[in-house]
Design a protein around this nucleic acid. Structure first.
Lengths: 246, 246
DNA sequence: GAATCATAGTTTACACCGTTTACAGTTAAC
DNA sequence: GTTAACTGTAAACGGTGTAAACTATGATTC
C-alpha cells in the first residue's frame, strides 16, 4: 500500500513526530534519564497518552528506539570500514571491529538494550544491520587473501546442514564452496561480541579494558584463521591509532 | 563487632526473615514475576514498607538477590567439578564450564542480572565466587599437565604489570613463575563468558546454540593453549554426556 | 520485676508509572 | 459542505518505590 502521491501535511507531520519521539527517547536513554512515556512526551510538549498514536505500548516504543540505534551502529561500522583504503579489506575489517567496540564502551546502555536483552526480543537482524556489514567485509577479505575456508564436508554433518541454510542474511557470496565462510563469520562474531560484552559489563580487570589488552589479544587470535598473521603488526598499529583517535 | 553470645530470638528472626525475603524474591524472578517490593512482601505476608528494615531500597534488594545467586552458581560450578574424578582436572574444568553454560541457558533472567548488568554494580568478585572456582581449577590443571605458561617478560610491559597485581582474588599459586596463569585465566574466562553470553542473548543462529556447536567449538579452541589437545576427543565425549544429562 | 529503649511491623500518603476511556479540534476525503 | 479519520487532550485506574508517623513487642537496664 505504497503512497505514490505527494505526502499530505498530516502524513509529513506524522513522520516528523515519530522521528522526534525516537530522537527524544534516545536522548533520555543516552543521558541517563528514565525512558518513560511521560518523560518522552514532556520532551516534545505532548502528554503521555498521545504517544499511543505512535506506539502501542511502552515496550514497542523501546523496540523502536532499539531498531533506530541498531541501524545507526551498523551505519557507523560501515562508515568506519569505508574510511580505510578500498584496496585494504583487512584494515576495513579491523576498523569495523574497533568502531563496534568503541561505540559499545561509549554507549553501554544502548549496547545492553540491543545486544544483551532478554525481554525485548524480535530485534531481528535485517539487511543493513551489523551482521550483514561484517558478512560483506569478510567476503572482501577472503577475495583478497584467500585464507582457507572450512569445507562443510570436514565439519560435523549437523553443523554443515545448519550452515548451508543460514537464518540471518549473509553476503550472497557465502554459498557453495564459500558456505564454510558462514562458520568463519559466526566464530569471528562470537569472539568480537563476547569480548566487547565482557568489556562493557566489566566482568574482568578494568585495566585490561582501558588499555585494550583484552581486545587486541582477541584480534590477534583471529589473525591466524583469517590469514592475517603476516599483517598482524601493521594491523595492531592501526588499532592503536584508531583507539586514540576515536 | 561479632556477637559471640547465643543469638536472641530477635536476631534469629531477622536472619530467617532476610533469608525468606531473598528466597521469595528469587522465586519471583525465576517464575517470570515482577520483583516488586509489594510482591515480595505479599509472599511473606508483610507490607512493602516492612522490607525497608532489611534493604535500604529496591535496588539494594535486587543486589541482595544477585549476591545470593552469584554464590549459588559458584557452588554449582564447584560441585559439578567435584563430581568428576579427583585425578582428572581436565574433566573437572570441562564439567565446570558446561555447568556454567547450562545454568545460564536455563536461568537467563538471573544470568542477565548478574553478568550483563550496567545498573546494579558493585557485585564485586569475592572468594567463593565463580572466578575463584575457575582459578583453582586452572591451577590444578596446570599441575597435572604443565602446559606452557606465558612468561610475563614475553608480554607487553603494561600488561605484565597488571597481571602481577590482579584486582580479583585468584588462586594463591598464581604468583612468580605462574603469574602468567592470570593471563591464561583471563583469556579463558573471556571465551567462556563471551560464548555463553552470546548463546543466552541469542544473537546467533539458535540452532547452533541448541546443538551446542558454538560451545563445543569454543572448548576445542581452548584445548591447545591448555595442553589438552591429546585429551580433546574424550573431553568432547564428556561434554556430550553432560549436555544430555543436565 | 518495672521502666526504658530499640526493633519490626503497620497505616497512610505522595509522586510517578503504563494504560484506558471519553472527548475535542483539525485535516482529509467524498 | 458534510462526513469521516486523525491527533491531540483531560481524567481516571491500578500499580510502583518511598517517606513519615505510629504501635506492639522483644531486649536491656536499674
Amino acid at each position: 500500500m505504497t503512497v505514490t502521491e505527494a505526502p499530505t501535511t498530516r502524513q509529513q507531520n506524522r513522520i516528523d513526530t515519530e522521528a522526534r519521539i525516537v530522537s527524544a527517547a534516545r536522548s533520555l536513554l543516552a543521558d541517563g534519564g528514565e525512558v518513560t512515556l511521560r518523560a518522552v512526551a514532556r520532551e516534545l510538549g505532548l502528554t503521555a497518552p498521545a504517544l499511543y498514536r505512535y506506539a502501542a505500548s511502552h515496550e514497542e516504543l523501546v523496540r523502536m528506539i532499539a531498531i533506530a540505534i541498531d541501524g545507526e551502529v551498523a551505519g557507523k561500522i560501515a562508515a568506519a570500514a569505508a574510511a580505510q583504503p578500498a584496496d585494504d579489506p583487512a584494515a576495513q575489517l579491523i576498523a569495523a571491529c574497533v568502531e563496534f567496540r568503541q561505540w559499545a564502551l561509549g554507549n553501554r546502555k544502548e549496547f545492553a538494550l540491543i545486544f544483551a536483552n532478554v525481554d525485548v526480543e524480535c530485534i531481528k537482524e535485517y539487511d543493513g544491520s551489523s551482521g550483514m556489514v561484517f558478512s560483506g567485509l569478510l567476503v572482501a577479505l577472503w577475495e583478497a587473501y584467500r585464507f582457507p575456508v572450512p569445507a562443510l564436508a570436514d565439519l560435523e554433518p549437523g553443523l554443515a546442514a545448519i550452515l548451508e541454510v543460514p537464518d540471518a542474511p549473509v553476503d550472497p557470496a557465502m554459498k557453495g564452496d564459500l558456505a564454510g565462510l558462514v562458520w568463519t563469520l559466526t566464530q569471528g562474531w562470537s569472539r568480537l561480541y563476547g569480548t566487547v560484552t565482557l568489556e562493557v559489563f566489566g566482568h574482568v580487570d578494568a585495566r585490561l579494558v582501558e588499555e585494550g589488552y583484552l581486545f587486541r589479544s582477541m584480534i590477534a587470535d583471529q589473525a591466524e584463521p583469517l590469514g592475517l598473521k603476516p599483517e598482524l603488526d601493521r594491523l595492531q598499529d592501526l588499532i592503536g591509532q584508531l583507539l586514540v583517535a576515536g
